[in-house]
Amino acid sequence: MLSAIKTQGRRPWDGIIPEVELAIYRKTGWGTPTGLGKHPALLIIDVQYRSMGDEPLPIEEAIKLMPTSCGEHGWRAVPRIARLVEAFRSIGAPILYPHVAPKGPQNRGQFEQKVPGVMEVPQHGYDFVAEVAPQPEDILIPKFQASAFHGTPLTSYLVGLGVDTVIVTGCTTSGCVRATAIDACALNFKVVVPEDAVYDRSQTSHAVNLFDMANKYADVMPTEQLLIALRQIAAAG
C-alpha cells in the first residue's frame, strides 16, 4: 500500500466551511489520509451528455436545452477525467462506467418525483461524452439509483478483478459520486475522489460534499496529485 498522501494548497471548501469548524475536525482527527492500495479501478459515473449538454455552455444557458445539465462545470472536468483514463489504460488497470440507464414509466420512483426533468432527457442525452467514452474492454454498468453499487453487479466485478481502491470521477459530486463513495467505504474499499474530476450544478454543494467525503469516506485530492500516485503504483509493479 502506498503511504498516506497529504494534500497541500487551497482546498475546494476553503472560504466556505468556517475556520472554527475546520479546527474541530483537525483537533479530533477526522480526515486522516489513508492512501491507495496496489490495485485501483477507475469509475466514470454518469459522464453522459444528459449531465453536461451537447456543448460547453454556461449552466444558465445549458439548462435551457438540457434541464439535467451541469453546464460548464461538467465540461471543465472532462479533460481531467480523460487524463485519468489515459493513465489507467497505460497501466492496464480496469475502467468501469456506471451510467444512468434510459428511464421509462416503470422507473418513476421517489427521485423522479423530486426531479421530474430526469424523465424528459432525449435519447442522445444518454450517450457517453466522446472525449471519455468507453472502449470495448471497459465494463458498462447501467444503474437506476444514485449509488453505482445499488442494485448493480459492481461489487462482484471489483472483487473478481482483485480491486482494493476505487477512484470515483464524474457527477454529481453531491449525488451519485457521494453515494458511491459512501457505499465503497462501507465495503472497505479504499476510496479516492479527484476533486477536479467530479462536478455538480451547485458549486457550494460540490465544495461542501468534497469536504464531507474527505473527512469521512475518501481521500480527496487534485487529479495531478493522483496521477503521481498512479505512477508510483506502476513503478512498484
Rank of each mutant, 00 (worst) to 15 (best):
M1G: 13
A4D: 03
I5R: 15
T7F: 12
Q8G: 15
P12G: 06
P12A: 06
W13R: 00
I16Q: 11
P18C: 05
E19Q: 09
A23D: 11
K27L: 14
T28V: 13
G29F: 08
G31L: 02
L36S: 02
G37P: 02
G37D: 08
G37I: 10
G37H: 02
A41K: 10
R50K: 13
R50Y: 15
S51K: 03
E55K: 12
E55L: 05
P56Y: 00
P56A: 03
L57Q: 14
E60T: 08
A62P: 04
I63P: 10
L65G: 12
P67A: 03
T68A: 13
S69D: 02
G71W: 00
E72Q: 14
H73S: 14
H73F: 15
A77W: 03
V78M: 04
I81K: 12
L84I: 03
E86L: 01
A87Q: 14
A87I: 05
A87R: 12
R89T: 13
I91M: 15
V100L: 15
P102I: 09
K103R: 15
Q106D: 15
N107C: 07
N107Q: 02
R108C: 01
K114W: 11
V115N: 04
E120W: 00
E120A: 09
V129M: 06
A130C: 02
P134C: 01
P134N: 09
P136D: 00
I139A: 00
L140R: 09
P142C: 04
Q145M: 10
P153F: 13
L154H: 10
G160S: 14
L161Y: 14
V166L: 09
I167M: 09
V168A: 06
T169G: 04
T172S: 15
T172A: 11
T173I: 08
T173S: 04
S174K: 01
G175R: 00
T180M: 07
A184F: 08
A184L: 03
A186H: 11
A186S: 14
L187A: 08
V191S: 05
V191W: 08
P194I: 11
D200K: 08
R201W: 09
H206I: 07
V208D: 02
D212C: 00
D212H: 02
M213I: 06
M213H: 07
A214R: 08
V220M: 10
P222K: 11
Q225A: 06
L226Y: 00
L226W: 08
R231C: 02
Q232A: 15
I233G: 03
